[in-house]
Write a protein that binds this DNA or RNA. Structure first.
Lengths: 120, 120
DNA sequence: TCAATAGTTCTGATATTCCGAACTATGGTA
DNA sequence: TACCATAGTTCGGAATATCAGAACTATTGA
């Protein structure tokens, strides 16, 4: 359990953000973290769009989002609290995150192949 | 050489766009195709940001961009002409492509690890 | 100290990516 | 027609990333 790494805003790179959000599951998790505008424990994402996510995969997804600079994670007792860094990132790449979340939201009604990217 | 597949705009999905553009090389190629606002042959991208791209990789990158719905490719004689579908995609996901290209453009000056995403 | 909860890391199976080599398609030349 | 050159595509194997089950670590509470 090495201490969690969070990149500084100025080290955040577009390719990392796009890669992180190019996975519908991660996009849904991030939507939930930043959409609800509040802190979420990892266990909140055990099911994403009526699809069960194994703990190990979930941990990996959270790590990818964190290392991309999209979220900030802090341990609070036994659980992890995930904050969105949306505002920070938006300062660096104006409109990027919003446009991505909008794009996903606009297709949330008509999912592609059985999976729903946002909370169905 | 199967006939090239181009998705209809309404079949274009955000995850495909993000995945396609999460590679700095592909982002640079797409920037060049849509930025210059004009048709480009594949051979125009033999070198991207002072990095040589093998033909086979280039072909693959073009394919990913095409299947994501970002570009349209037509054979003209011996060469392939690549058009941007930027406008179409923007109609479906407003601001998405622009925000992504802006993000890459804003870091083009200070590259991450030796590679320059846009034309250096 | 022991058990329970919340996440992380390890490990092997699967899937992607990369790039050289071989191939296909078109055009030009004779 | 044959033949060559150019422009891209596909094949195949090595390197890499992703996925998920199992084992582990960290914290809290009894």
């Amino acid at each position: 359990m090495r201490p969690l790494f969070h990149p500084a805003v100025e080290d955040v790179r577009p390719e990392a953000i796009l890669h992180a959000l190019s996975d519908p599951v991660r996009a849904a998790i991030f939507t939930q973290i930043s959409g609800l505008g509040c802190v979420q424990a990892c266990s909140a994402f055990a099911v994403v769009g009526n699809k069960a996510i194994p703990k190990s995969s979930l941990s990996h997804h959270i790590k990818v989002l964190r290392e991309a600079g999209l979220i900030r994670c802090e341990r609070h007792g036994v659980e992890m609290r995930n904050h969105s860094r949306c505002a920070e990132v938006d300062g660096r790449f104006p409109g990027l995150v919003a446009a991505i979340l909008n794009a996903y939201a606009s297709v949330a009604d008509k999912p592609a192949a059985g999976d729903s990217p946002a909370t169905a």
